[in-house]
């Protein structure tokens, strides 16, 4: 009960300054939790709720997709024909691999293997970057040049269906929102790396790694649905 200034600094945890053990061993819990396990449970629940909001966010996109594909099936099949399955497949593989590396990062945080924790964080970051570059260079850019753009910017002269701009609207909207999630994820991995270098993670204290890992999985899962819905509907 001696720590009085908890209100202001409590949320950062009670870390005595004069102690040379690694941060994760010195850290107890934010002041309103009983212990680290209590805090861990709460954080994990918060992350899962956040994931539920993500699912519902994308659900709007998927509903729009379902309705317009039902209304204009030819436009979607035509539009899908212009997408290059091989690049989509490559990106799927990249993301699946990153799912493995992020799971490995969580495991290494649990066991306190700092070196491999850092390596796996970096690998996942690079996978995100690779996904974005492939998307940008081999998919977005050519389509941009050919005028396969949403709505009023659609200028591709050989369109066979009057509703193709709608398909491209759904395509750019869905993949764009997904790509913005990948970018956010990369930012989170950069943050994790900085904290990992400061030895913030270890056995019993890996909430952040686990939370970001769960987020990254949802980003992967959304792509797992987008890939067949957009690329494989001939």
């Amino acid at each position: 009960m001696a720590t009085i200034d908890l209100g202001k600094h409590g949320a950062h945890g009670q870390v005595p300054a004069n102690d040379d053990r690694p941060y994760h061993e010195r850290y107890h819990a934010a002041h309103h939790f009983v212990d680290r396990e209590h805090e861990f449970d709460a954080v994990k629940m918060g992350v899962w709720l956040f994931l539920a909001t993500e699912v519902l966010l994308f659900s709007g996109m998927f509903v729009a997709y379902a309705i317009f594909r039902m209304m204009h099936p030819e436009a979607f099949i035509n539009g899908s024909g212009y997408l290059d399955v091989s690049w989509g497949l490559l990106n799927t593989v990249v993301l699946l691999l990153s799912s493995y590396t992020v799971a490995a990062a969580v495991r290494h945080a649990q066991t306190g293997n700092q070196k491999w924790l850092r390596i796996n964080i970096v690998l996942t970051f690079l996978a995100g970057l690779a996904f974005l570059l492939i998307k940008l260079i081999f998919e977005y850019y050519p389509k941009f040049v050919q005028g396969k753009l949403p709505g009023k910017f659609f200028s591709y002269p050989y369109a066979e269906n009057p509703y193709e701009p709608l398909f491209w609207g759904v395509y750019w909207g869905a993949t764009g929102i997904h790509a913005s999630h990948v970018i956010v994820g990369m930012g989170l991995f950069a943050w994790l790396y900085v904290r990992a270098r400061k030895l913030h993670f270890g056995p019993g204290h890996y909430n952040a790694v686990e939370g970001v890992g769960l987020y990254w999985h949802i980003v992967d899962i959304v792509w797992i649905f987008l890939f067949p819905l957009l690329y494989l509907i001939h």
Binding site: A64, L149, P150, G151, K152, G169, W172
Partner: peptide, 10 residues
């Protein structure tokens, strides 16, 4: 907003 900026048609 997409609709307003790009007229995506949804």
């Amino acid at each position: 907003l997409f609709e307003r900026f790009f007229h995506i048609g949804i």
